[in-house]
Nucleic acid binder design. Structure first.
Length: 107
DNA sequence: ATAGTGACTATAG
DNA sequence: GCTATAGCCACTA
C-alpha cells in the first residue's frame, strides 16, 4: 500500500506534458510534502516500471540530471532531446522547459 | 523502535 | 561553477 503522497507524486508525474520537465522539489510540494523531494526519487525507483512514469522529465532543482547511474543519465538526456529539449552537460534550461504546474491545480 | 540509505534542497565557503 | 553539511521523509534491514 502506498501513501497518499506517493499516489499524488505518481499522478503528477504522469501529467507532465511532453517537452516539459519538473523538479523533485516541485513534485513533492504539489504532492503535499515540500520536504519530500527525496521520496520522489524513491517513488521513481519503485514505480517507473509499474506505472510507466516519464522519469526522464524529472530533474533536480538546477535542471540537472540527478541520476547516479551514468548509463541512465545518458539515456535520460537522449529521451529529453527526443522531446525537443536541449540538454547541455546533463542539464536543461528550466526557464524554458519547466512545466507551469498551475494547470494541475484545476484538476 | 533504531539505524542506514537515497535519481533532493538550501546554505555556506 | 564545485564540495561539504544539515535537514527532510519514506523505505529496508
Amino acid at each position: 500500500m502506498q501513501t497518499k503522497f506517493t499516489k499524488n507524486v505518481i499522478k503528477i508525474i504522469q501529467r507532465i506534458p511532453k517537452g516539459r520537465v519538473l523538479t523533485y522539489g516541485r513534485i513533492s510540494a504539489l504532492a503535499g510534502n515540500p520536504r519530500g523531494a527525496r521520496q520522489v526519487s524513491r517513488i521513481l525507483h519503485s514505480c517507473t516500471k509499474k506505472y510507466s512514469l516519464p522519469w526522464h522529465r524529472v530533474l533536480n532543482r538546477n535542471g540537472k540530471i540527478a541520476i547516479k547511474n551514468p548509463s541512465g543519465a545518458e539515456m535520460q538526456k537522449e529521451l529529453l532531446e527526443k522531446e525537443g529539449i536541449v540538454v547541455e552537460s546533463y542539464s536543461v534550461d528550466l526557464d524554458v522547459y519547466l512545466w507551469d504546474v498551475e494547470s494541475f491545480s484545476e484538476v
